[in-house]
């Protein structure tokens, strides 16, 4: 009987120890702030490749560097010299990897002229969005309605379910990313009406393409990233063909108007170089989760 009691006591002690150990392990595992940061550190700050890119991908580049080096995001010290300059820097070998929009004909030609071949990988997606004043009752437009508004066939909001008011359809300068996107993704060969121009006496400027002003009758467009230029409390993103530009709809491709940002390197980078290691990390499932955490829609 005494032997049985001793065995039970030992068993109970073992159970208590197991419970305590289990609790400690659970606390350490579930309560840990950022396990991934330390688990996936693959570079030192010193050997991290030189990265450049567009302003739209600045936060993405910072998130990648922070995650892949384990450095605090406030200390990663990334600067992006904007799209055009970033391409020049990559081609001139002043940088190793750039995060940018797909190369234009001019940028492709510049690379060819310098004997540089580019390797291009999509990294994150971005939607092309239409926005109106938050007070505007219109929530959705079909692609055809948008084409009609911007070709000048529809001029009143009442024709698309809104109030009886003239539509003020703002456009962008032809050299901007959004105007290029508008022509290729939305208008698809249809002619756009002439842009509204303004004289700005205070600045002594004549015939300037009017910047979007968030009045009740306004409609504007841009890539989703550039909506950061506006107070999001005051504008409303429209659905297109009944599909909202949400994370899920962009990720699955259901929201049709979208583009991607790319990681681009020089093709002659050695297979075992840090640049390729970084590129692979960016498009890995871990890299893509970092992109998502940073507020982007991952490509893979």
């Amino acid at each position: 009987m005494q032997q049985k009691n001793g065995l039970i006591n030992v068993l109970l002690i073992i159970i208590m120890v197991l419970v305590v150990v289990g609790c400690i392990v659970s606390y350490l595992y579930f309560g840990q702030e950022d396990v991934s940061n330390t688990q996936n550190t693959i570079f030192n700050m010193e050997d991290y490749p030189k990265v450049d890119g567009s302003i739209a991908t600045l936060k993405l580049a910072e998130a990648f560097k922070s995650a892949f080096t384990g450095e605090d995001i406030d200390n990663v010290n990334i600067t992006h010299s904007k799209t055009e300059k970033a391409y020049e820097n990559l081609i001139n070998t002043e940088t190793d990897l750039i995060l940018v929009t797909y190369p234009t004909e001019e940028e492709t030609q510049l690379a060819l002229n310098n004997g540089v071949e580019l390797e291009i990988y999509p990294v994150v997606k971005d939607a092309f969005v239409f926005f109106v004043n938050k007070q505007n009752p219109v929530e959705n437009l079909t692609l055809t309605q948008i084409q009609d508004i911007y070709s000048g066939n529809i001029t009143n909001w009442k024709d698309v379910g809104g109030a009886d008011a003239q539509i003020t359809a703002y456009q962008r300068p032809s050299t901007s990313d959004s105007q290029k996107g508008m022509l290729s993704l939305v208008m698809q060969g249809k002619n756009m009406k002439e842009q509204d121009l303004e004289d700005v006496e205070l600045w002594q400027l004549t015939d300037i393409i009017t910047d979007y002003t968030n009045t009740d009758t306004a409609i504007g467009y841009s890539y989703n990233y550039y909506t950061s230029l506006y107070d999001k409390e005051q504008i409303k993103l429209l659905s297109v063909n009944g599909i909202e530009p949400t994370y899920e709809n962009i990720k699955t491709g259901l929201y049709g108007l979208q583009t991607e940002y790319y990681a681009i390197i020089r093709k002659d980078e050695p297979e075992d170089s840090n640049v390729r290691k970084l590129l692979n990390a960016m498009i890995s499932s871990y890299g893509q989760s970092i992109a998502k955490e940073a507020g982007y829609v991952e490509s893979y």
Binding site: I55, E84, P173, T175, S176, D177, Y226, S228, L229
Partner: peptide, 9 residues
């Protein structure tokens, strides 16, 4: 106008 959106951003 260059890529004025990027300059603004």
């Amino acid at each position: 106008y260059g890529n004025i959106e990027e300059d603004l951003a």
